[in-house]
Design a binder for these strands. Structure first.
Lengths: 192, 192
DNA sequence: CGCGGGTTTGATGATGCTCAAGCCCGGTGG
DNA sequence: CCACCGGGCTTGAGCATCATCAAACCCGCG
């Protein structure tokens, strides 16, 4: 469990045995069943979750009551609402388990102290955030430059692992169209 | 010039006089005329630019030859292609001055050394990136949850400073629709 | 076996794009 | 100082795309 996180961190910065013990004293390890909520709209988000095993999603509620997918996250990803996290403001997001999960979380109310004791984590999260930001801009590019159908194919080709794990209605929302339309794309593919 | 950067950094982390001198030895200060390119498609991006004065934009070329706006940046923002920057891969982006600019840049080939000497900059950029990432996800939300017209109004209300500074065709592209459509939105507003 | 969430299918319609033409206005050269 | 040029903005007609709505279907689970 905890070793997965240590290994992930060590891909970016050094972390010796003693430091690992310090880190461990600041994190919370938990198992969460499928479809449970880690965060609900209106709550202030105080945690940043690292996924050892499983799958999370975040979404917002649209005016018409539909759920708009914001992010997926699987093994070795971090997920939180940085906006709420940073400003201590109520979140617009729901964060929910899509599968049974093994999670490790850091609480922002102790994170500052942790960063002081293990300053290399500043660097670690800087690099993680750099990747996340770049990925988010990429996704915006796909929204702008590709048609819905092209977005689906692109996702299919580049993230085949997800297709098996998440229901289609979540994927459709993530890609920015309706489940009905996704169904029609699939029918078209089956024809040829 | 350089003081603007120092003041911005000091909003997030401490930086004493001696450290300011170190920082200064690692940055490049330059004035660039309107419509000049800092980066062109196919080049590897080695710099991260801080805007002291002026306005930058980044865009990609779409298949049909149109320019798709990726980001705007004005005073006290950083702009780069993190994707190219990080992987040392050729960029898909053009980065161009929209106005005459005063810029400060850091070169990624010396940045590592700078971060070792001034480790608080790890934290500074972590916080900057956290904001950038949150903003990027917000923008995705607007793309998903608002109609083109609503996006325009939202942008109008929240970033009035930009409306004066950037031509409409750039704004339309940034918001994800055509200049023609933006013109029709404006006509509609004028009616009422 | 029956229920219900998720997916499929089809008809209809709105939204925003494309294309083409005209206009407005600031800058340049005669 | 005026004429012209061209980039950017406007306007309108026609059209493609994808959403909406409704109904049927499929299948896993209790």
């Amino acid at each position: 469990m905890f070793d997965n996180l240590v290994r992930h961190i060590q891909k970016f910065v050094a972390l010796n045995a003693e430091e690992q013990i310090i880190l461990k004293s600041y994190v919370k390890i938990e198992s969460v069943k499928k479809k449970q909520f880690l965060l609900e709209e209106g709550q202030v988000c105080h945690a940043n979750w690292f996924i050892v095993k499983g799958c999370l999603r975040s979404y917002t509620l649209k005016e018409n009551g539909n759920k708009q997918m914001v992010q997926f996250a699987i093994e070795n990803w971090w997920l939180t609402d940085y906006f709420s996290f940073e400003n201590k403001k109520p979140s617009q997001l729901f964060i929910q388990t899509v599968e049974d999960c093994e999670l490790i979380s850091i609480d922002d109310r102790t994170a500052e102290e942790l960063f002081v004791r293990l300053p290399q984590l500043e660097r670690y999260f800087r690099l993680i955030l750099q990747k996340s930001f770049a990925a988010s801009l990429m996704r915006l590019q796909y929204m702008f430059n590709l048609s819905p159908e092209e977005r689906f194919h692109h996702f299919n080709d580049n993230f085949p692992a997800f297709i098996q794990r998440v229901p289609q209605y979540m994927l459709a929302s993530y890609l920015g169209f309706t489940p009905e339309f996704l169904s029609k794309i699939r029918a078209k593919i089956a024809d040829s």
